[in-house]
Amino acid sequence: MVIRTEGLSFSFGSQQVVKSLSLQVPEGSIYGFLGPNGAGKTTTIKMLLNLLQTDEGSIFVFEKELQTNRIAILSEIGSLIEQPAIYAHMSGRENLLNRAMLLGVKDARVDEMLALVKLTNAAGKKAGQYSLGMKQRLGIALALLSDPKLLILDEPTNGLDPNGIIEIRELLVRLTRDHNKTVFISSHLLAEIERMATHVGIINNGELLFQGSVKDLEAISQPQVYVETDNTVDAANLLKRNNYEVVDINHENLTVPFTSKKQMGEINALLNQNGITVFAINKQHKDLENLFLAITKSN
């Protein structure tokens, strides 16, 4: 395990924000740390970086205890917490050069990172004038600068446009697949995590509700096939006659539990062959709220 916590707890005053958390992050995984805003994600991440002192419990990173091996562990971690911390009066390159100096990293690496996050052209511009997406990319470049084994990223796609999100996702997948890095990434978007994570931990009100592989999660989250046709009632009856379970139906659309992509094609063909026009058919995920309900029920 790259990260292992046992009974991790933290309180701000009398309010307990993290409750007996036991995380297991395997090597080479993209671990999606999922939860709504205020669930305790950032607090947990700050404890993993030794920024907050834990009330109870222990943290092991690379199988070493964090308190007693702080510097050795931190030298293998790159992190981005909340909004990126950037000196606004310095250029993007200067921000990276400053960090390179502190980490003892060669200056050549700075240009590599600028190219990687596509900021080479804006490298000389003051970082204070960057857009939110550019700041976020600079933050990711800062996190990657020391070529760390473990990346801890707190909502790194915040403020990025769809292209930026896709680029980050591909970058993270590449890092884990080709360079055997481990990525711990927090998000409040289930779909976002499902697209890239190999493992998932779900936190709500400071408690870990679920932890396991993405496959395990899918068993609980049960994606739906959403179908929009010119005649919803006829379509529903036709599907039922063909042994499909229709879970929800209204004037506009109906939904069927998702089993495979092939099944979606078959539904489409079946409806078309029986003279029903399909306007839309796609796979849909439960939102977090419904997922929490499903997890609570399955427990």
């Binding site: 970086l49 920024l51 911390a85």
Partner: peptide
């Protein structure tokens, strides 16, 4: 203030430096 303004205390204290 350099650190307060840029919100960089958290990065300074998560560097591998005591």
């Amino acid at each position: 203030n350099v650190e307060h303004k840029a919100d960089t205390w958290k990065t300074l204290f998560s560097l591998p430096i005591s």
